[in-house]
Amino acid sequence: MSETKLNKQLNITKPLKLKPVFRKVSPDRILLYGFLILIAVILLGPFIWLVSASFKESKDIFSTTFTLFPQREDGSIYFSFENYTGAIEYLQFGSLFVNTLIVSVVTTIINLFFNSLAGYSFARLKFKGRDLIFKLMLTSMMVPGTVLLVPNMIIINKLGLYDSLGALMVPFLMSVYNIFLMRQHFLSLPRELEESAIIDGAGWFTVFWKIAMPLAKPICVVLGIFTFMWNYNNFLWPLVVINSPENYTLALGLGALISASNTSAENYPLMIAGAVVVSLPLIIIFALFQKHIMKGINVGGVKG
């Protein structure tokens, strides 16, 4: 039926324009979507295999044919949940998760407070040697973290914190990278609000806590999540300063499980299931705070 006849039947005086059902897609957009799909497959492929293999028996893990779901020789699908129960029991997931959560949360909170305070000081306060101190601090970012292992361990020993959860927190209560990002964000904020508060008699800390910090919530959320994830995944430093199993973190527990799995192929399903269990909390955190992460990154990209 033509548009003219349809307009007459519906008593429409103004011509009705019918939109096409399918929009024409440009070749550039097709190439873009194809490229993004390829990147997604490359990034998600190993994790999909990890989750699939965590439900398999050891003989099926080394099979040359990949199947999305575990299958027996007769083609029937099965799921070996014993891998997860064995991995959780070996990892002592409850106590290790509590240790990891304490270290990550406490370090993140103190890190954000100190780094935001330092960033605001470099951005707003004027004191002798400010720019020189900031430049020297930035140069420390060029030093590899492994070079600082021995000096940090000596300091931890002198403080009497060796083989304790405190040893996992103290070296990471400050971060030059976070200070730099906080300083750049505070520099982008308008000075008028702070100047009016100072005229009303507010001190610098009051201005920082009541005015600057509420405006810096998006970047604080992003840095807080990244700091939490870094401390959650940290393996090398706990390996150096922790000896007692009761002070292990999930990263150390997973490392011990991997070492045990190397001695026998029968332990490979436990190792893979343990890797899924350890990574699951981070996936949940990212899913819950995805909008805040993107918002903070956009704010940092526009204003920083």
Rank of each mutant, 00 (worst) to 15 (best):
L159Y: 10
F35Q: 10
E73S: 08
Q92I: 06
R130N: 02
L96N: 12
L132E: 11
E194T: 06
V277C: 06
S244C: 02
L31C: 04
G94N: 07
K17H: 08
T4W: 03
L239K: 09
A118H: 07
M213V: 15
K217C: 10
L282P: 02
S264M: 01
L280Y: 13
W230E: 14
K14E: 15
F22G: 03
L10M: 14
V143I: 15
L252M: 13
G45V: 07
I102M: 10
A256M: 12
K8A: 13
M142E: 00
I284N: 02
K17I: 11
M294Y: 10
G300I: 01
F134S: 14
Q9N: 11
F180D: 08
A256V: 07
E89W: 08
L215Y: 06
A87P: 00
K128Y: 13
V276G: 12
F235M: 13
P151T: 07
I12N: 15
P190T: 04
S196P: 01
M229V: 12
I285D: 01
G201Q: 06
L68P: 03
V176H: 04
I88M: 11
L236H: 01
T108A: 13
F127D: 15
L132Q: 11
I285P: 01
S76H: 09
I297P: 06
V277A: 07
N234Y: 07
L38S: 13
I61F: 00
F35S: 15
V222L: 15
K128E: 10
G34W: 04
S259D: 08
E192G: 08
L68W: 11
S54M: 00
T206E: 15
L148E: 00
V276A: 14
V207Y: 01
D74V: 03
L181G: 12
S26E: 10
H292M: 03
D60T: 07
I198E: 03
T64G: 10
N83R: 09
L236K: 02
T64Y: 13
L270N: 13
L138I: 15
P171G: 07
S175D: 04
T65K: 12
T249W: 07
E73R: 01
A275L: 13
M229Y: 12
L136D: 02
L223M: 10
L38V: 14
V98Y: 10
H185P: 02
I225T: 13
I297R: 06
S196K: 05
L223P: 00
